[in-house]
């Protein structure tokens, strides 16, 4: 579902659960974020999120691992750690059991890698396979990272390269090179756990993960909730090898157009930014990295921590006074 349609159908529900009546619901529909957060004591809040989708790659184990990493990511984007997860499954009745077992193994091993426990799930018959997780995480209520915490002067970092969306689209169209697919699969399978731990070590206020609404869509949510402008430097944005090539061939999925329609009103591109790069930045990502506004006095320490951990991290822009998104 595109962001515009989603906002429209959710609108009637927004006022039903006001903060005044549900004081422990720290993050809900009123100001939506990567996941819901519910405070149970002054020291503990639970994070609730779920995500599932149809296969993005052929290998069933990889599909399970990617779907799980993608679902778990919302917990990290809120600043939490994974506690428990449940499977969400839809499978065709004639899908071989060994394939289903591989999907579930891929998901379960990711949950274990995240330090959580897989505790159950629900399966239904479906024409197209679907898999994902419902996840519960834990966070100290004072350490929740929301989309509203960015401040002018913050430096924007990104913890995974962009481009998996267009590469998986090229793959579905049978024109992607195996090396490009492999790089995209490895990126999508990678948990955001370590990146989340590192940003918590230096202390940040805001974070989101880059998924279906694209870099610019998710960045816009931060800009809007933080009343600030997010400015990206196009030449600093990292892409998986192959992504720019498929953009040149105009192999954009339909989701690119939905995102462009929803967010282009808020995005100002420098004249030098070519059309295919603009489209690429509106292209949905799957299990993308964390986009984090980092207070300027903490950026050097954070970059040193990422370097020490041998974890990739790119400085891609800054937060400025104003509104919306700038790409220059």
């Amino acid at each position: 579902m595109g962001p515009e349609a989603l906002a429209q159908v959710l609108r009637p529900l927004k006022g039903m659960f006001p903060t005044a009546a549900y004081p422990n619901l720290i993050v809900g529909l009123e100001v939506s974020d990567d996941a819901a957060v519910y405070k149970i004591t002054d020291e503990t809040a639970i994070i609730l999120t779920l995500d599932f989708f149809t296969p993005v790659v052929d290998d069933p184990y990889d599909f399970g691992a990617i779907a799980a990493a993608n679902a778990l990511s919302d917990v990290y984007a809120m600043g939490g750690q994974v506690a428990v997860a449940l499977n969400i499954c839809g499978f065709p009745p004639d899908l071989p059991r060994e394939i289903i077992a591989e999907i579930l193994r891929g998901g379960a091993e990711k949950v274990a890698e995240a330090g959580g426990a897989l505790a159950g799930g629900h399966t239904m018959d479906d024409r197209e396979p679907k898999y994902g997780l419902s996840v519960m995480g834990l966070v100290h209520p004072d350490h929740i990272l929301t989309k509203g915490g960015a401040r002018p002067g913050d430096i924007l970092i990104l913890t995974k390269p962009l481009g998996v969306g267009i590469i998986t689209t090229a793959f579905k169209a049978d024109v992607a090179e195996p090396a490009h697919i492999q790089a995209a699969v490895e990126s999508m399978k990678k948990l955001n756990r370590q990146a989340a731990t590192l940003i918590q070590q230096v202390g940040v206020r805001a974070c989101t993960d880059i998924t279906g609404f694209s870099l610019l869509g998710h960045a816009y949510e931060i800009a809007e909730r933080s009343n600030a402008c997010l400015r990206f430097y196009a030449d600093k944005l990292p892409f998986i090898v192959g992504a720019r090539h498929y953009a040149d061939l105009w192999l954009f999925p339909g989701g690119t157009c939905n995102n462009e329609r929803a967010y282009s009103h808020a995005v100002r591109f420098a004249d030098t930014i070519p059309e295919e790069l603009r489209q690429l930045l509106f292209t949905p990502e799957t299990s993308g990295g964390l986009l984090v506004p980092v207070p300027p006095d903490r950026i050097d320490r954070l970059l040193a921590l990422f370097a020490e951990a041998n974890h990739p991290c790119w400085v891609v822009g800054e937060v400025a006074p104003g509104e919306g998104i700038e790409v220059m």
Binding site: T169, A173, L249, P253
Partner: peptide, 12 residues
């Protein structure tokens, strides 16, 4: 057909 199929057929 959904994108990018129409684009690919047009390009061919």
């Amino acid at each position: 057909l959904s994108c990018p199929q129409p684009v690919m057929l047009a390009k061919q």
